[in-house]
Design a binder for these strands. Structure first.
Length: 426
RNA sequence: GGAGGGGUACCGUAAUCGGCAACGGAACGGUCUUGAAAACCGUCGCCCGCAAGGGCUUGCGGGUUCGAGUCCCGCCCCCUCCGCCA
């Protein structure tokens, strides 16, 4: 959520930021008009309340002294009626302003490249060399079933399309990747969290999924509960409505959760394999930091997530998202894209974002810069570290051999009982 | 799911019959002090306002009333017990 004070005081800056994202300026004009009306109303209302408070005390005093307060009571009856009517209007205005503010996206950082969509994204750097296969490499949706690791057909039977059954050593490999990633992060200062996989609407609003993107998530029938679309939601909301002490910051969390998304697949893209599923697994990194540190923290967060790919020996590149490709709540995002032989290109495997105070304001997450000082909003960041299903796919594809077998990197040996070889069933 | 008890500021606790949300502690600022402690004063949630000042805030949302922490209705969470359950 944008700061209403900022909108008032620096309308030009807000308008410029929204225009860079192609977001409507119409809402901005509407907010400014409603806010002007609201402030005038509040002044009038507060004056009436002041009078009511004053006379009500007087009535109390008169009654205690056994006097007759009927004149005051009659006058205050009218004032009370007037206050009731103004309060109703004030609530309307406030609700409407709030509703508009909640639908306004974050402002992009100055150094975010401008552009209409992902075509304007800018490659920042590359790591590793995509393997040149002396044979036609197979896709993971062919390798996985052939190796007895993945079963897409039975998942379709028991649930539907865009779900997967991990089987036998495939299930073990998925569990191994989750454990490997969590160990990697906790060894580097992140605190492991295992949150609920269902969250309430307040949490979904706090991180920005609601009110605009409810259709992208699964809701539990008959309850105010949603299946988490990402661990970002429960983990960021851990500190909703809290005032953190300055010496608690920065806070670094990592969390494994399954992620549930109903929108995946609507566009008919990536219909095969693990790339776009209604349920997938992810290890997420979440940071709460001082405002002055968030830009630097985004760089280290991105480098940290990239470290997982490097440990696994998977070639990747870092891409700075353009204003047109930026997520709703983000001010600045780097995507990590892993080399995927079946696609013949780099495919997103992590998205690292700085939300600045956008989520903190929605979720009311503050800290005291100094003991005794006024509370301020923290900055929140998060990034995938990594999407586990896509990592699974990238490993199979990048480490495949001509006979359809796969040998995974040594770093996974402790998590796989030393069994790094995967051979096709005959 | 049922019964009972609770939710008040950073923490702990009051508030009679409905009448300015009191007190203690912590933290921070100040006075005092060579320095510190103690003591005393102030600050310590949010909003409007250039300011003076005013308003809001007792888990959340409604209602009654001139006036609600207090009375009424709905909901959420915590504790105890019962039921159910991996």
């Amino acid at each position: 959520m944008l700061d209403l004070k900022l909108i008032r005081q620096d309308e030009a800056r807000v308008r410029r930021g929204l225009e860079r994202r192609g977001a409507g300026a119409a809402e901005l004009d509407r907010i400014l008009a409603l806010d002007a009306e609201w402030r005038a109303l509040v002044a009038e209302l507060d004056a009436l309340r002041a009078e009511r408070n004053r006379v009500s005390q007087e009535i109390g005093r008169i009654k205690r002294e056994g006097g007759d307060a009927s004149a005051q009571l009659a006058a205050m009856s009218d004032v009370a009626e007037r206050i009731r009517s103004l309060e109703a209007r004030e609530k309307e205005l406030q609700d409407e302003i709030e509703a508009l503010l909640l639908r306004l996206p974050n402002l992009p950082d100055d150094d975010v490249p401008d552009g209409p969509d992902d075509s304007a994204n800018v490659e920042v750097r590359r790591w590793g060399e995509p393997a040149r296969f002396p044979f036609q490499p197979k896709a993971h949706w062919d390798l996985g079933p052939a190796l007895g690791l993945l079963d897409f057909e039975r998942a379709g039977k028991i649930t539907g399309s865009r779900f997967t059954v991990f089987f036998d050593r495939g299930a073990r490999l998925l569990r191994a990747l989750v454990a490997f990633m969590l160990d990697y992060h906790t060894a580097r200062g992140f605190t492991e969290v295992l949150p609920p996989f269902l969250v309430n609407s307040a949490s979904m609003t706090g991180t920005g999924q609601l009110p605009k993107f409810g259709g992208d998530a699964f809701r539990v029938d008959g309850h105010d509960l949603w299946l988490v679309p990402t661990a970002e939601v429960p983990v960021t909301n851990l500190h909703r409505d809290e005032i953190l002490a300055a010496d608690e910051l920065p806070i670094y969390y990592c969390a494994y959760t399954p992620c549930f998304r109903s929108e995946a697949g609507a566009a008919g893209r990536d219909t095969r394999g693990l790339i776009r599923q209604h349920q997938f697994d992810k290890v997420e990194l979440v940071k709460f930091v001082r405002p002055e540190d968030s830009a630097r923290e985004l760089e280290t967060l991105t480098a940290h997530a990239a470290g997982v790919l490097e440990a696994l020996g998977l070639p990747y590149r870092v891409v700075a998202l353009s204003t047109g490709d930026l997520g709703f709540a983000s001010a600045h995002t780097y995507d990590l894209e892993v080399w995927m032989p079946s696609y013949g290109r780099y495919v997103e495997i992590s998205s690292c974002s700085n939300f600045r105070d956008f989520q903190a304001r929605r979720a009311n997450i503050r800290y005291r810069p100094e003991p005794g000082a006024k509370p301020q909003y923290v900055h929140t960041l998060n990034g995938s570290g990594l999407a586990v299903g896509r990592t699974f796919a990238a490993l199979l594809e990048n480490y495949q051999r001509e006979d359809g077998s796969v040998r995974l990197p040594e770093v996974l040996a402790p998590y796989l009982g030393g069994q790094l070889e995967f051979a096709p069933r005959t």
